[in-house]
């Protein structure tokens, strides 16, 4: 179980990215973290495995306070926390297999990892995971030769090879098309429930979050402003998280004609395709 207790982060620039966040994530729960850009979602995730050093507060993972660990203890704790990234964060010039095996770096010494001499059990597990995410055909392909969806699958396999107790997922679908996004979210969900992992997913796509998460936490200006089930995300709650917007509108605003004339735009034919694309965006 993960318990975050009044966690704050102030960046050297003076920005308070997190202001006393308190959360509890039970084992096996998939939690989505939503909120506008700059609300502190990424900072919160990175404070948990201390890629970002928290300013104050504590983070307990299965009875260990992660904020008080020294470098060595932190490395050991990190092995149990898998992370999946927005831009996949694969090492581009390494092969698929090397990227997946990187998930076990915390368990082998430097020379083993330098000469890529991982234990056979690790290699077996890596092949099993590659097969599970549907990439068993090209373990020796370079990571930069893969498509976006395939790269994210490698990222997932790498995180799972750590055999983690907690999965931190930072905007896993922001660089993917809608169909691939859903497939990736489904895959993360399935793997989490197979292994009983707790998952925290930061995500911009609210409908996708509602579809796959059991619980939604809304962050705004570094504070939790919503914590509840996906089906209670009403327009007024979304207003509170993201700010004013007509959440039920499915097209351009009613007053667009008036607005356009006020701005001095004529009804130019070139504007029409643009409007259509706005509509498509909203309906997604």
């Amino acid at each position: 179980m993960l318990r975050i207790d009044s966690l704050s982060k102030r960046y050297p620039t003076g920005d308070m990215a997190l202001k006393g966040v308190t959360l509890e994530v039970p084992d096996g729960q998939v939690m989505a973290l939503i909120g506008p850009s700059g609300a502190g979602k990424s900072t919160l995730l990175r404070c948990i495995n201390r890629l970002v050093e928290p300013t104050s507060g504590s983070i307990w993972l299965n009875g260990i306070d992660l904020t008080r660990l020294n470098t060595r203890e932190l490395r050991q704790a990190r092995r149990k926390i898998g992370m999946i990234f927005q831009e996949y964060a694969l090492v581009e010039r390494l092969t698929v297999m090397e990227n997946v095996l990187a998930g076990q770096l915390g368990y082998v010494n430097f020379w083993q990892s330098w000469f890529r001499k991982f234990p056979q059990a690790t290699i077996d597990e890596a092949f099993r995971l590659l097969d599970r995410v549907g990439l068993s055909d090209f373990p020796d392909k370079r990571a930069d030769a893969l498509s976006g969806g395939q790269r994210q699958r490698v990222g997932i396999a790498r995180a799972l090879l750590q055999n983690p107790e907690l999965l931190l997922v930072d905007e896993p679908t922001a660089s993917l098309d809608p169909k691939t996004s859903r497939q990736i979210m489904r895959l993360i969900n399935e793997l989490a429930s197979e292994r009983g992992l707790s998952v925290i997913i930061s995500i911009h796509d609210v409908p996708l979050a509602q579809m796959f998460a059991q619980r939604i936490v809304g962050l705004r200006f570094g504070e939790v402003v919503y914590d509840g089930p996906p089906n209670r995300l009403t327009p007024s709650v979304l207003n509170e998280i993201y700010g004013e917007e007509d959440w039920n509108a499915s097209g351009p605003a009613q007053d667009s004609e008036e607005k356009r004339s006020r701005l001095g735009w004529s009804s130019h034919p070139l504007r029409d395709p643009l409007q259509k694309s706005v509509e498509v965006n909203r309906s997604q």
Binding site: R75, Q76, A77, R78, E87, E92, G103
Partner: peptide, 22 residues
């Protein structure tokens, strides 16, 4: 690319492993 370094650090890799992998 700093994100690749972050990714390797987040697996629990040591400094030398981070340098050699990322």
């Amino acid at each position: 690319d700093a994100v690749q370094v972050e990714a390797i650090r987040s697996t629990g890799a040591s400094w030398l492993q981070m340098v050699s992998y990322a």
